[in-house]
Structure formats: structure tokens, C-alpha cells
Amino acid sequence: MYSDAATQTTATTESETTMQADNEPEMSRQNHAPEPDVKVRAENVRLWYGQTQALHNVNLDIHARKVTALIGPSGCGKSSFLRCINRMNDLIPSVHIEGRITLEDEDIYDPSVDVVQLRSHVGMVFQKPNPFPKSIYENIAYAPRLHGTVNSRRDLDELVENSLKRAGLWREVADRLHTPGTELSGGQQQRLCIARAIAVNPEVILMDEPASALDPLATATIEELIDELKDRYTIVIVTHNLQQAARVANYTAFFHMGEIIEFNDTDTLFTNPREQKTEDYITGRYG
């Protein structure tokens, strides 16, 4: 599972130098086969809610078509960081952000960036399933129609079907596409939300505790789904469930009090953590 995942230290300037030459992801894969390419890079990200600082100098490289898990005790800033990546924090008036976040070398906080476009590249799945109070079909068709990416009715039907298939929901809902999405079970709703995110063909999917409101069976389904999705998408998942992180993530970042204490491939982080705090956390000594 992690065969191609080179051991990666916390993203800092060292890793930056290695990456600088490879602007083209395609190139980088050819030239440095074992070196995974960076999809999203956070540099010195600091975030304040009013006067209180919630993130201190977060540096992180998120690798393309891999699953990166963010773990850490409650209130350590995982969600805050996640929301930086699709600029959902913009909606909170008191937020102030410094530092740099790039999506394939484009600064997403550049004034010329259109958040609408950014969010169609970076999708998000929330902790509680939040389908729109519309039909299953409309839930998925909404965003492609909004962004004008699909023209004909037939293409739209196809897109809906494919998105549902990729989210593993097609067989369960194929015969009731026009019933309200809110009438599905919690697990189905969450997969509907994933299908909805997939439908705009994003590059990155952010998931904030996507399975924490679900029962173990539905959770397992979501985890399998994440495993399949990483072939196409870059996934960042916040989770409180360490087993889940160990199961689904290629890389794991441990957050503590607004800082990344340790970032590594998941196996190493869980079996051989460098930092005492990480070890304390994963062995359940606190948090």
C-alpha cells in the first residue's frame, strides 16, 4: 500500500528545494519515480480567529493521489487547517490568515484567485452528511449545472450515474434518483455527499471526520470508498479514529495546539514516532 511512499519529513525548506525543479507533475513522476508529487503545499500558515491564534506556522506537503490524514486532540486546529485549503475560512468574518498555500504552485490566496474555481478543484465532505433538501439526482447535478461543465441532459444523466457509481451508491439508489436525498440513511447520505463532490471532478477532496457520525458498517464502506478514490483524487481526511487513519491514510500529520508536531508516512508515524507527544497521543496517553 505504501510501497511508493518515500519517507517524508515535515515539509520544510529542504523538501522545497527538491521540488522546485519540478513544476510539471508529469515530469516529476518520470524523473524521480519514487518521489511523490506535491499537490497542495502549505508554508508557514498562521491563522487567527479574532485575537486568538489557532494555527502556528503550519508546513505541510500533500501528495497527489494519496490519502493524507490529519490527527490530533480536539481543538488543535485540524479543521481550521483543512478549511484553509478550500478557503472556507473566508466565510468566518473574524478569520485572518498569513502564509502561503499553493495548489500545484498556484497561490490559492492570491487576490486574483476566484474562490468559485478554487472550490471546484478542491471539494469538501463534512462531518455530518449535509445533502441538499432536493432529490438525489439534483444533489449531484446541481454543481455541474452551476459551473456549466455539462451541456446536454444526456451528459448530465451520465455524470450523475458515474458519480454515484464511483461513490458506490448507484446500485442502492438507481431506481429512486428523484426521491429526496435527505431520505437516505446516514451512510448513504454521506456517500451522496461524496458523489456530489466528485461530480465537479475536483483534484483534491477534503474530508472533515466524514465517518464520525456513522455506524461501523457505514464507516467501513466509506473507508473502502476512500481507498478506491485515491487512484484519482488527492484526499485529505481529518479523523479522530486512529485505526481509521492507519487503515486509509498513506501519510499522517499529527497536529497539536495549532502546530504540526510530526508528519510522516502512516506506517512510520504509528509504529515508530519520532516525537514523544506523537507517541503519547497514539498510545492514548492523552487527547
Partner: peptide, 15 residues
Amino acid sequence: VPDPIRLGAFAMGCS
């Protein structure tokens, strides 16, 4: 109207 519906829509790129 619950906020998650708004957030979901914003996250899809709605103005």
C-alpha cells in the same frame, strides 16, 4: 435552514 446546507453549497463553489 441548517448551516451545513449553506456550507455544503459554498463548498461546491456557490456564490
